[in-house]
Amino acid sequence: MAEKTISITLRVWRQDGPQAEGRFASYHAKDIPADLSFLEMLDIVNAGLEKAGADPIAFEHDCREGICGSCGAVVNGHAHGPQRATTLCQLYMRHFNDGDVITIEPFRAKAFPLIKDLVVDRSAFDRIIQAGGYISVKTGTAPDAHAQLVPKPKAEQAMDAAACIGCGACVAACPNASASLFTAAKISQLCKLPQGDPERKRRVSAMIRQMDHEGFGSCSKHYECQAACPKEIKVANIATMNREFLRTLLPGE
């Protein structure tokens, strides 16, 4: 059975390093099987470049299953490409047409300095978590898991928020390059659970402070983040974050 294949033209952002000048370069990808993933298509283009002794396109990837959050690029203007609820590694070539021109750029944000080509530095996310995105329990001190019950709806809501993979698409999609959705998802997960309650106030203040400090913009409710999120994290989490923050300002709270 002859596989369906397509031929496409790529316009890819190439930039050797943070200080180097960037530019778009064009590549033709011929006879790409439609069953390949987007990254496998890039593998083929890169193999061609390698054979020609040229520098292959640098892009990040690891699990190729949509869970590690390594991959990501802006494809035809959409973070992770046009498919809803899909990371770049889970985007398949069957969603493109023969003859398409595909533009691929890195996630751009002041707080995500470029490293090379499509690779950016997202360590700002780690520092936001360091500010308080955890419950401070030391190993060995926990009571029996059933000592504290968690109502199922709360557990489900916590899980919805905890599904964030930290890819940075929300930042890339936001006109202000805000990290509100990322930050809110963690705050929201932990404040839904009884275990997270004691550190609630400190957590929200510290994480928001760090987010601002890293140079992310603020949220002006465009909701592009939610549209781009491969894990469908909801902007309702941002409302939760804001509510949690207001609580810290209330007297007696």
Binding site: Y134, V137, K152, L193, Q195
Partner: peptide
Amino acid sequence: DHCVAQGVPFAREYSGY
């Protein structure tokens, strides 16, 4: 026990267990 204390959102029954 430890992971629950860390806030890992394991699946639960309606009872909360």
